[in-house]
Design a protein around this nucleic acid. Structure first.
Lengths: 79, 79
DNA sequence: GGCGATTTGTACGTATGTATT
DNA sequence: CAATACATACGTACAAATCGC
């Protein structure tokens, strides 16, 4: 599965952020997400690159991260 | 001048962000800031660490960064 | 309370790409 | 076209918080 294309228009960390967000939307991740380093390995990117993607999702309000605990799906924002 | 103390309570990139912000406030930087790599060398930290500090200042609304052009002091926010 | 395992956080140094001058 | 300057990406090491035993 050619998930990440380094030559794509979108940057790697944006592609990953979008992909993880889709996995949240589809219900694959309901509560706790895999460890950052596990996700980095899964996507075949550097840890710091995956951290960037996570930062994007935090900015989008989709995840909540706590040191030592993990990363969790954020409750849907009230509309 | 022991600018950055790796053993301080604040993280390196926060210390640097605060220090650069003070230099802006004091009028040392009025328009254009030195290049990121020059600042990294001046503070004796890695380029990516200085980039983090700059991100903090962008978040604080103190600077504006443009690829290929440089980093500039942001006009004061209206109150 | 201690200890180890797990997980996120910071920091480093480097390479390459992209935009501006 | 060359020099300058910001942007992304990699891989690594160590620190800090949390959890289970």
């Amino acid at each position: 599965m050619a998930l990440i294309d380094p030559l794509a228009v979108e940057f790697t960390y944006i592609q990953i952020a979008n992909h993880i967000e889709a996995r949240i939307d589809v219900g694959e991740f309901k509560h706790k997400l895999p460890a950052e380093r596990a996700l980095a390995a899964e996507y075949g990117v550097a840890y710091q690159t995956l951290r960037r993607a996570m930062q994007v999702l935090r900015d989008r309000g989709r995840i909540i991260t706590r040191q030592g605990r993990g990363t969790f799906v954020a409750p849907p924002a009230r509309t």
